[in-house]
């Protein structure tokens, strides 16, 4: 039991958040806290919705290459904009802009000597999602650019809920995600996850195709 608790606390402590979960911002005048964590990608993120369509926030991201020779740490100011929303009788679709600008600290380990650098990075991107009470689809592409560096991020998610629940009940989902970060991994990470959505929280966890754990959460207040 203690080990189990320690595992989750460790996960939460080093958590981080690519904003690709449900929507990347909450309702007007709300804060959204997000976290996304695995071995090579950790991000924590908070934003505040100043209008029903605009949110500003801060984000801290740690990225590492598969062979552990490259590490990147990025602290950025972010802006999220709901570009368009389609409200249908039993479905909703959204098109989002997400972008940021921040300080990147990088390290490339070499055979003879390591190379450290600091740069300004910009991270504009778009996300499309479609959701009903039973199915979910999301595609996102975000540029992570600075001079001589390209760590563009792409992800696709799709899933279904196991059964319908009431508004006050927790709903379990199965989600399959594929993602890649250019320049840090040549592989496509595939992660099947279990997601639990309640009106107050959103958590999901799984194990990717490299047998590494993954944990995400969102909370709006």
């Amino acid at each position: 039991m203690f080990n189990y608790l320690k595992f989750w606390l460790l996960g939460c402590a080093i958590l981080s958040a690519q904003p690709v979960l449900a929507g990347p911002m909450g309702f007007n005048e709300s804060y959204m806290v997000m976290g996304d964590f695995n071995n090579n990608w950790r991000e924590s993120f908070i934003n505040y919705a100043i209008t029903p369509r605009d949110a500003f926030g801060v984000s801290a991201t740690y990225m590492r290459s598969d062979d552990r020779s490259k590490t990147r740490t990025l602290e950025e100011l972010t802006y999220t904009r709901l570009l368009h929303r389609w409200n249908m009788p039993h479905a909703q679709a959204n098109l989002w802009f997400m972008g940021g600008v921040g300080a990147l600290q990088g390290e490339n380990k070499g055979l003879n000597r390591d190379h450290d650098f600091d740069k300004v990075m910009i991270t504009p991107g778009v996300q499309f999602d479609y959701e009903t009470t039973r199915v979910y689809f999301m595609a996102t592409h975000r540029l992570y650019r600075t001079s001589n560096l390209n760590h563009d991020y792409s992800a696709i998610r799709a899933g279904f809920s196991f059964y319908e629940t009431g508004y006050d009940q927790t709903q379990p989902w199965f989600i399959l995600e594929t993602r890649n970060m250019n320049g840090l991994s040549d592989k496509v990470e595939i992660t099947p996850m279990l997601r639990f959505i309640n009106k107050n929280f959103f958590v999901e966890g799984g194990v990717n195709n490299f047998y590494e754990p993954r944990f995400n959460f969102m909370y709006i207040f």
Binding site: A22, G23, F27, R85, W86, N87, M88, H90, A91, Q92, E131, T132, T133, T165, Y167, D168, Q169, Q171, I197, N198, K199, N200, F201, F202, M218, I220
Partner: peptide, 9 residues
């Protein structure tokens, strides 16, 4: 458009 409890809160 109200399909998700987390979003509709």
């Amino acid at each position: 458009g109200m399909v998700c409890a987390f979003c509709a809160q």
